[in-house]
Amino acid sequence: MVKTFLRRLLQIIPTLLVVVSITFVITRMIPGNPAVTLLGPQASVEDIAKLEEELGLNDSLWKQYTDYVGKLLKGDFGKSYSFNQPVAKLLMDRLPNTLLISLTSIVLAILIGIPIGIISAVKQYTPFDYISMVLALIGVSMPIFWLGLMLVLVFSVNLGWLPSLGMGSLENGLKDVILHMVLPVTCLTTIPTATFARITRSSMLEVINAEYIKSIRAGGLKEGVIIYKHALKNALPPIVTVLGIQLASSFTGAILTETIFSWPGMGTLIVGAIENRDYMLIQGAVVLTAAAFVFINLIVDIVYMIINPKVNLDNAKGGE
């Protein structure tokens, strides 16, 4: 398994190189010129020409590409045009803020969503099942933007219980930060909770009705043991897959939620970078996200192997 892990780890490098190249090409293909966007409408033709030269936009694309990849291999993500700061620093400043709310909401989603899914499956066609699945349906289809504004109206404007924006500061105590987290985390938790509940329910139902569970049940084991020890374990793979995707996308931040709550995270940074045609920053953010995706995929595969030893990752590539 260690060998497989190491080999998969090495495969990340060519994958990332492809991602870098594609991102490089795409950022240059979208219309818009960083110098024009950066300087705004009042800039004269000379201002723009001067800045283009400064930013190295007049070099050939090939030179810009090789320069970028060369630096990237040395761990240098380049400098953001609009912030005039190293991309790596900008990303690392934001990543913890984003992970703080996104990981919290994933943990909450697991803690709430999976039990609901299990109970719904076990008590299929009971009122609990109906209500929770309708709620889940609403949760999945709720526009986050609307939900965020409604939460603010109710809990901040009308009731005055919770702050409506910003991160708070540790200087004012942990409580301040936690209070600031409540609304954005609620917003972010809605969809994953609903997704987990639905996936768990359908996956559990499949397993519960399988022949081998019936035979275990015939063997006289307690229902609780059957559900948690035998059924849940076999129902896990699809849940792990969804969890993997959720985890990986938590790195990019939640653009809408961060915007509504003025949360200084990755989402707002990336949107700003795209609006400003800040090539270096877009590339840096995409590389980071891609790395997170590839790495978490790898972890998910390993987890698969642990929960189901029959899964052999090497077989997928023709076997050895």
């Binding site: 979208i30 219309p31 818009g32 010129n33 024009v36 966007t37 409408p41 795209i274 609006e275 400003n276 045609r277």
Partner: peptide
């Protein structure tokens, strides 16, 4: 379009 594209056109 968003501002970047608009300003170029």
């Amino acid at each position: 379009s968003e501002w970047g594209t608009f300003s170029e056109i």
